[in-house]
């Protein structure tokens, strides 16, 4: 099987005021294509930092990181933007849709930054919105949608560019449990039917179990 994520001895330090924080202390992590893994750990264990590194939002202090065959730890800001745009899809806890744009426009954003023309864009976005079951709400603004619907738009936005990995940061954290389960069903479906690689961070055991592997972080180490 192909390795989508390959992390070798990753360290991450950052400064919090005057204090030097060692957030990650030698992480070794491999994720294969089609895996659905859950990262768990108490707050301060470094799970958000790890997710940021996987998401190429930040660079490791030390170590090697290969994402879908690309060595990314040495890339500059411009190149990291392209990696994020082409290889990653993000789902956030608080949805983070742009409030001035309707559902389909929000889904379009990653494709726009790729420079894809409108006609092709619309097709892909419709497809993605239908996958998450929102084919009929394409022209609604975020504030006209429920939390679950907003999160589905966010998932559509994450999958529209057919990324190598979908990263979800507490995707159910802002939702009630029923809606949360609906969202997890979508993730499961994407994982099983579309063979999508998913990495999620969560602190709920039930949610974590939906994935096929759980990685537990404590004090910057993988247990």
């Amino acid at each position: 099987m192909d390795k989508v994520i390959k992390m070798d001895n990753i360290y991450k330090n950052y400064k919090l005021g005057q204090v030097n924080v060692e957030a990650l202390k030698g992480i070794n992590l491999e994720v294969e294509k089609g895996e659905f893994i859950s990262i768990m750990g108490p707050s301060g264990s470094g799970k958000s930092t790890l997710l940021n590194l996987i998401g190429c939002l930040d660079k490791p202090t030390k170590g090697l990181y290969e994402l879908d065959g690309n060595r990314v730890e040495k890339l500059n800001d411009y190149q990291l933007s392209e990696i994020r745009n082409n290889f990653l899809g993000f789902v956030f806890q608080s949805f983070n849709l742009l409030s001035s744009l309707n559902a389909i426009k929000n889904v379009e954003i990653p494709l726009i930054y790729r420079g894809i023309r409108k006609k092709v864009r619309k097709e892909l976005c419709k497809e993605a919105l239908e996958v998450v079951g929102l084919g009929d709400r394409m022209h609604h603004l975020p504030n006209q949608l429920s939390g679950g619907q907003q999160q589905r738009v966010a998932i559509a936005r994450a999958i529209v560019g057919k990324p190598a990995v979908i990263l979800a940061d507490e995707p159910t954290g802002a939702l009630d449990s029923k809606t949360g389960n609906d969202i997890m069903d979508i993730f499961q479906k994407l994982n099983k039917e579309n063979n999508m690689t998913i990495v999620q961070v969560t602190h709920e055991e039930d949610i974590a179990k939906i994935g096929n592997r759980i990685i537990r972080l404590i004090d910057g180490y993988i247990q």
């Binding site: 998401g55 939002l57 800001d77 411009y78 933007s81 392209e82 994020r84 745009n85 082409n86 993000f90 956030f92 983070n96 742009l98 954003i109 990653p110 930054y113 790729r114 936005r157």
Partner: peptide, 16 residues
């Protein structure tokens, strides 16, 4: 700010 962050995550470059 958070909108800027979302854009960056979705692939916006600095110059965008």
């Amino acid at each position: 700010t958070s909108e800027i962050g979302v854009r960056r995550a979705l692939g916006a470059k600095k110059y965008d």
